[in-house]
């Protein structure tokens, strides 16, 4: 799980071209959007593509995406729970 979170942070920073962010500095539970990392809805859509590409997870609904992408921890939990499917 920790390894998954570490990888996710690296992938998010790379995918969104967050040059000024050190992946290790991202708190597992900090909100990704608005206040925390300051991402926006286009970033959310890019993360949808990332999750499909790297983890085979398909998200087709915007509301669902919002719920999953609260934080790195919530994304990791979602990936874990959908791994076996």
């Amino acid at each position: 799980m920790d390894e998954l979170k570490t990888n996710l942070k690296k992938q998010i920073v790379e995918c969104l071209n967050l040059k000024d962010v050190n992946p290790e500095s991202i708190d597992d539970n900090a909100p990704l959007f608005g206040e925390g990392l300051g991402l926006d809805s286009i970033d959310a859509l890019e993360i949808v593509v990332l999750l499909q590409q790297q983890y085979g997870i398909k998200i087709t609904n915007a509301e669902e995406a919002k719920a999953i992408m609260q934080s790195v921890a919530s994304i990791a939990a979602y990936i874990e729970s959908h791994k076996s499917n």
Binding site: L45, V48, V49, I59, N61, A62, A65
Partner: peptide, 20 residues
């Protein structure tokens, strides 16, 4: 489709159940 803006049912403008 990548913007998740398409409804897979018929669209419902100004309805509370609209999805895209």
């Amino acid at each position: 489709n990548t913007l998740l803006l398409l409804d897979n049912e018929l669209c419902r403008p100004f309805d509370s159940s609209r999805k895209g």
